[in-house]
Write a protein that binds this DNA or RNA. Structure first.
Lengths: 347, 347
DNA sequence: ATGAAAGCGCTAACAT
DNA sequence: ATGTTAGCGCTTTCAT
């Protein structure tokens, strides 16, 4: 008793109405109201109407915390949000997060962001998991060994990875990824179609699985035409400066007429080199980047770039999450999606 | 009874330990464990040690849902996540979100992302508010009338705005903003210092408060030197194409030697125009953008740009949130922060 | 300094 | 088809 919703003083806002308030108003039990919300089919039509009216009149919304406690679920998906790296063109995260937010919403979930502890990458996951603050995770940073995925799998924590378990083919967690090799192959074939034969590759160091994957698409396309790739490849850090240096060396030593890059960041480095040498991208030398970043879209004359279907990725991830969160959990096979090529002035 | 933590079958993971499990192990009451977690000062040193040992051994973490239900708080801050606009350079959101995630974490909060309903911008807020899913909101899209802020204020919902209540000076909610006029003044003075006298402005349409604010900084700097601004200003849509067209017209009709722009997007349009005319940014014509986007950082030779101190914004916002969430709520005055200028090759 | 009792708002399980 | 009972795990209040 003593709960008089709507009668609290103006200074202290009224507590939101509860199930009990609705029940009293509609002249039914609390359980019936609960059913009206969660299993309306169970109610007789006229009872349902009466309850729904009471709900509307009171502006009732189920209390999340109470529901979470009772159902042992939070309807929250945890995502470790890594910062954009300043001075690079990489912004996949941003577009992906939006797609994920949108898609999870349709499935009745929200996205909870947490920061990565620089020292212990697993700390953030640990916290949320053991306090049952989230129902599952989406793991995105699968590029380096991915200790998170392994850690989560050991604890039987539900999660879906954006990215293949490269070095753990035995991993049994669901994942969704984009076929990087197909993307660079697409890019290389596009250049071949425009008459280029000496097409250089600028990618990441050998310990990057994603980098090697993307590189393999370039190789595949070149070899399919029986073109030599000797001296045409460079593996560097993912920075603009590295892209600039690598392209400068390649131009001097291998005279390529086109560049395929593992990232827009590297491609911007190539554009810098061309700019320094008074060459025009697209006319004198062709350049293709990877990720279709904003940079690729707005740089003068535009940068042709491989675009990941992030909206589609999000859809498949949420589908996998839903499978994971039913009992018994359903784990489907990994999903590999095909990227597209955004054509612009640089080719 | 029947709860045997750690003894569940391997197929069904064990339920996490509860307060009661810790209490039993430590030979104290549940309340004492709760105090050990929340008010350790209340315990005798040896009891505290014993309880802490039990907590460590069991790997106990308080259940969020239960705590939320009891304390009527979720430790969650809601943020409506708007997508990046493709084809623009705007990515303030991304950097800001990261700062916010980082800062809220230090204050014991997490960030909950939700999508904006295109039709009803208030819908997402409504839901989370009435289900008490979040403790407060951070409102970022204050550029157009800001119905959200008004709506939230009417409902006495706790929120902090990133952005001034331009058209509602009587608003009493906390806000944090960046002094756009100071930024463009900084930019203009920088150009004046480099000898420029005919400095043009490309900004947004008149109905944008932020746009007019930024414009006023340019005006102020020009007028302080008794320089005419007649014919040197243009107000357009925030797109690269508009920036290109506006700069083209201005170059023909007013012969400016420098441009100050309301956004990096517009500035990229200027760079396009220069590129088309065979002019070099920085040597022939100077250009300054606004927001220090990734684009500004990696475009060949770089784009000088006004940089918002988003980390600092986040700190002040979280400070304001904390004030809001104490009882009684403490509402401080609005906070206006000064931007800086990131110097690059375009000036 | 510690413990016992009560209850936050909801839903699963069972009874009618 | 609806109601009753119990309890999710925690903290507030009060007693010792």
């Amino acid at each position: 008793m003593s709960r008089t919703p709507g009668r609290a003083s103006a200074l202290q806002p009224a507590l939101p109405p509860t199930l009990a308030d609705v029940a009293e108003r509609a002249g039914v039990s609390r359980q019936t109201v609960s059913n009206a919300v969660n299993n309306p089919d169970l109610l007789r039509a006229d009872t349902l109407t009466r309850v729904q009216e009471a709900i509307a009149e009171l502006g009732y919304t189920p209390n999340r915390a109470a529901r979470n406690l009772r159902t042992r679920s939070s309807q929250l998906i945890g995502l470790r949000f890594t910062p954009v790296q300043e001075g690079t063109a990489n912004a996949t995260m941003d577009r992906f997060v939006h797609s994920l937010v949108e898609t999870t919403r349709e499935a009745g979930y929200h996205v909870l962001l947490f920061a990565g502890d620089a020292v212990d990458p697993v700390a953030g996951y640990q916290d949320l998991l053991s306090s049952t603050a989230v129902d599952a995770f989406v793991v995105t940073d699968t590029y380096l060994g991915n200790p998170q995925a392994t850690w989560l799998e050991e604890r039987r924590a539900p999660f879906v990875a954006f990215g293949r378990p490269w070095e753990h083919p035995e991993a049994r967690h669901p994942w969704v990824d984009v076929d990087g090799a197909a993307g660079t192959e697409l890019a290389t074939n596009h250049l071949l179609g425009r008459g280029h034969r000496r097409i250089a590759w600028i990618g990441w160091r050998k310990d990057s699985w994603i980098g090697e994957d993307r590189r393999s698409g370039w190789l595949r396309a070149m070899h399919a035409r029986h073109l030599s790739t000797t001296g045409l490849a460079s593996r560097v850090e993912d920075t603009v400066a590295s892209g600039r240096e690598a392209s400068s060396v390649l131009l001097d030593e291998a005279q390529p007429t086109a560049f395929v890059c593992a990232s827009d960041t590297l491609a911007m480095g190539v554009l810098q080199t061309l700019d320094e040498r008074g060459l025009r991208a697209g006319r004198d030398v062709a350049v293709v980047g990877f990720d279709d970043s904003q940079v690729a879209q707005v740089v003068p004359r535009g940068l042709t770039s491989v675009r990941q279907p992030l909206e589609e990725v999000a859809v498949h991830i949420v589908k996998a999450l839903e499978g994971l969160l039913t009992t018994p959990a359903v784990v489907g096979p990994g999903v590999l999606l095909a990227p597209t090529l955004a054509l612009r002035g640089s080719t």
